[in-house]
Structures are given as structure tokens and as C-alpha cells.
């Protein structure tokens, strides 16, 4: 993996995404207990943590599916906390969910087209070409029902669909889940190339080693709070990581 040149300060002046003291949960149960983090332009930021610490809940709150209880979400200079998903997508914050959530009863092409639901028709056609260039396999299967794709192809489709929404920042929730080691390698390569093309990425993962290798910075969540944060390379070397991550 090629070294990503570090900016002089690890955090750019005005981050693309700035989450401050975010609290959210389901019904009475609080899951996020005051999470703060930032993602800067051009960065890959990893968000790691054991099962059930609230990573997916964080993503759902950022994308407007869950209403924040308190705290602030600033994206691209605007407050989007409490905004509904259509507005969040239109603003360019795009979330590729855990478990893909593609439309199994629609063709691959239709899945991609719906990714551009909030994009003008002309932009959509160009984006579709680009998505097919990025994922030639999806082009081969354009007419096939998405539900008949293999797990790896479905993950490609989910990301392709996300790219069709013209993201300014992409949230990926466990993109390597259920992929064979070879495909995981390919997936991380893809993420690196998206970031190289200038797309900031918030990468939520269980795959700690590879994620820290790829990301410039990382946050470790523990029980709904940020337990550790910092430059990915430093965190990777920190013995405390094992304790926080494995809950030892």
C-alpha cells in the first residue's frame, strides 16, 4: 500500500464532517453517549469498535434515519442534525449500509439508477457510465436481478449505488463483511482509489489491521463513546488498542 502523504496538521482547518457530542439511541435506550469526530477533505477516517458499540447507530444518525437526541452534525458547512435522509443525500453525505440493502427485486441497472434518484437525469447517465467503468462486472450483469448476485457483487453494487448519489463524503459500514480474503483485498484497494480521486471516506470496520493500514486517522468506539483516537499508524502500534477493542 502506497503511503498517503500526511497534511502538515493531522486535521484540516474546516472538516467536511464535524460531529460534536452526539447522543442517539432507540426508544429509551441510549446507544451513542456523546460522540465527537471529524472527517476532513481527502481523508480516510476509520471508525472501529467491537460488536454492538454503536457504529451502525452512528451511521444511521448521520444519514438522518435516526433522529439525534442532542449534539451537532455539521456537514460541508451546514448543520444537518435532524435532517431527513433525502436532504442528507442531496447534501452529499452518502451512507452505504451494513448488509448492502440493495433492491433484490430490481435489476442491477435499476439499482444504480435509483442511486441517482436525487441527481438530474443527464448527470445520472454519465455517472452510470462511470460506475460501469469502475465495476465492469456490474455492467456484465446489468439486466440481472440484484438479488441473484453473489455477496461480493452485491457489495460492489451497494458501493456503486452510493457513488451514483454523487457523494461529497462516503460512509461505508463494514464493506468487507462476508467477503473472501482476496475480495477484502480488492475492496480496500477500491476504497484507496476512491480516496485518491478526492472522495473523503468514513470507513466503519471490524477489519482492524487493514483499516488502520488504509486510514489516515481512526476513532475507536467503546460502549457508545470514543475511547481512543488519533493517527492510524500510532493507534496500530498502541497496546491499549487491544484492550479497548477486545474489551479485555
Amino acid at each position: 500500500m502506497s503511503e498517503v502523504p500526511m497534511p502538515a496538521s493531522p486535521m484540516p482547518e474546516t472538516p467536511m464532517l464535524e460531529v460534536a457530542d452526539l447522543r442517539a439511541g432507540y426508544g429509551e435506550a441510549e446507544v451513542l453517549r456523546g460522540v465527537s469526530l471529524t472527517v476532513g477533505a481527502g481523508e480516510i477516517v476509520a471508525v472501529l469498535g467491537a460488536n454492538g458499540v454503536g457504529k451502525t447507530t452512528l451511521n444511521m444518525t448521520l444519514s438522518g434515519v435516526l433522529k439525534p437526541w442532542s449534539g451537532a452534525i455539521r456537514f460541508n458547512g451546514a448543520e444537518i442534525g435532524g435532517a431527513k435522509p433525502p436532504a442528507v443525500v442531496a447534501a452529499g453525505l452518502v451512507h452505504v449500509p451494513e448488509g448492502r440493502k440493495i433492491f433484490p427485486n430490481l435489476s442491477v441497472r435499476e439499482n444504480l439508477e435509483l442511486g441517482g434518484y436525487r441527481v438530474s437525469k443527464s448527470g445520472r447517465d454519465a455517472n452510470l457510465q462511470r460506475a460501469f467503468d469502475t465495476f465492469p462486472r456490474l455492467k456484465e450483469r446489468a439486466g440481472q436481478y440484484a438479488g441473484t448476485l453473489s455477496g461480493g457483487e452485491q457489495q460492489m453494487l451497494a458501493i456503486g449505488r452510493g457513488l451514483m448519489s454523487e457523494p461529497k463524503l462516503l460512509i461505508l459500514d463494514e464493506p468487507s463483511l462476508g467477503l473472501s480474503p482476496l475480495l477484502v483485498e480488492e475492496m480496500f484497494g477500491l476504497i484507496a482509489s476512491l480516496a485518491r480521486d478526492g472522495l473523503p471516506i468514513m470507513l466503519v470496520e471490524q477489519n482492524v489491521v487493514q483499516s488502520l493500514d488504509l486510514a489516515s486517522r481512526a476513532y475507536i468506539l467503546e460502549n457508545g463513546e470514543v475511547a481512543m483516537q488519533g493517527e492510524a499508524a500510532k493507534l496500530a502500534a498502541d497496546p491499549e488498542l487491544k484492550r479497548a477493542y477486545l474489551g479485555l
Binding site: 434515519v65 451512507h95 449500509p97 440493502k101 440493495i102 434518484y117 449505488r161
Partner: peptide
């Protein structure tokens, strides 16, 4: 959920 996340 997938529909919400593409902005539907």
C-alpha cells in the same frame, strides 16, 4: 432502509 439511503 436501502430506499431511504438513496434519498427516497
Amino acid at each position: 432502509l436501502g430506499a431511504s439511503l438513496v434519498g427516497i
